[in-house]
Amino acid sequence: MAWKTLDDMDLNGKRVLVRVDINVPMADGKVTDATRIERIVPTITDIRAKGGKPILLAHFGRPKGKHVPEMSLQPLVPTLEQAFGAPVTFVERPDGDSLAALPADAIVLVENTRFTPMEEANDPQMAGFLASLGDIYCNDAFSAAHRAHASTEGVAHHLPSCAGRLMQAELEALEGALGQPVRPVVAVVGGAKVSTKLELLGNLVAKVDHLVIGGGMANTFLAAQGIDVGKSLCEHHMTDTAVEILAKAKAAGCEIVLPADVVVAAEFAAGAANEVVANDACPADKMILDAGPTAVARIGEILDSAKTLIWNGPLGAFEIEPFDTATNAAAQKAATLSKAGQLISVAGGGDTVAALNQAGAAADFTYISTAGGAFLEWMEGKTLPGVAALEG
């Protein structure tokens, strides 16, 4: 690949600017979920082991270019110190001289980069100022890589740059899934709306062998084939687009897999009375809330023959029982195959991570991206500014 990693850099005695994502949930001034902080530990540990001084750049919340005291990064210091097993020096207004004067093994946290409008504007002056604080730039925030900001893109043009361990793992997983995948490749795409995933579907049909469509999106594709979906969630105005996607898939040799049978109910409620019917037999007063057992078996067959899986979105209304059945079954199947070394599985997106965790399948997937928007834009085939800036 065209970008460098920490292994390609001489960090000894160098100040290393590290763009991280520590935008963690907080309550009463305390971190309630430290997952994002824990994921940057390998990068910080490696930089220090190689004699570098990590200077952390990060945003928190959406202060919209103003100084918002409630969005200061200072309250994160205790959690960072606990994760790193070392003191962290918080600096509100950094300058190169004072950072250089800190001990060689110091870890520095700079105040919220978004406290100035220059950050999101990718102002050249701010990029130059940030560059003056360090000798090397390391981006470890893939989740912010789809934004061209001063701390994610601008600064990379001023300093020798590389990817951190988390960014490296993310890029290698995604490149393995979509760049040079081991075939056959299956994509599972679910969720409520076709309209929010148009570019994703358009890109995937040209790259994968099987595209499994679930959730409310599947209803729109069924309706596009003239099937009555009753009271189901369905974007009837998108049926022409669904027809175009079906045609594009056929031309590309990609099989689009829609549920042959579905689970229907009169109401969207936990434990609601439900039945399994053929996909063209949804009663007018009911709604489709999950894929049926025949559909799940078909997905299982496809996964059995696949080598690579990309997953984004649930197959049904996974939030409530029993409409989580298809998602859970398919996720557990993928997890079993991944654990056995038969499948490379990459998943991402908020609902997806929640669904795979609920299914107890997340731990056995090859890679789970927590990068939301950046993960989706990568899957859509877009160039991510923060990644492009590391190339060269």
Rank of each mutant, 00 (worst) to 15 (best):
V262T: 13
L390K: 09
L303I: 01
R62M: 14
R183V: 08
A249K: 14
D209K: 13
G216M: 11
D105M: 00
L109C: 10
E321Y: 14
G202S: 14
Q225C: 01
I344R: 15
T294P: 01
L246V: 06
P103F: 05
D364S: 14
G216N: 11
E319V: 06
T370K: 13
T220P: 07
L166W: 04
G179Y: 05
L178F: 00
T370G: 09
E319N: 05
G392D: 08
V262R: 15
G372E: 06
V346G: 05
V387H: 00
V194K: 12
G341P: 15
A297D: 08
G360M: 03
W311A: 12
A163R: 08
R36Y: 07
D280M: 03
H158P: 04
A247T: 11
A252T: 12
T116K: 05
G96R: 02
F323N: 08
Q82I: 04
T241L: 14
A104C: 01
Q225L: 07
A86Q: 13
K307W: 03
I227V: 14
A273L: 04
G230A: 10
R19L: 04
R165I: 02
A266F: 02
A317W: 02
H146E: 06
A330L: 02
Y137L: 08
L204H: 03
G65M: 13
D10F: 04
I288P: 06
I47P: 00
G348K: 11
A326W: 05
G300D: 10
G29L: 01
G341A: 15
M287C: 10
P94M: 02
G179E: 02
N312G: 06
A317H: 08
G360Q: 12
V276A: 07
A49E: 12
G215Q: 00
F142Q: 10
A317M: 07
A131G: 04
P124M: 07
M217W: 13
C162S: 05
D123W: 06
L201H: 04
S369P: 01
P160K: 08
A354S: 11
T113P: 07
A27D: 00
A223C: 12
A2F: 11
D324L: 04
T43K: 00
V353Y: 11
L6F: 01
V262H: 14
R48G: 06
L56C: 05
I344Y: 14
L17Y: 00
G215N: 09
I44G: 07
T152V: 09
D8Y: 11
M126D: 07
M167V: 08
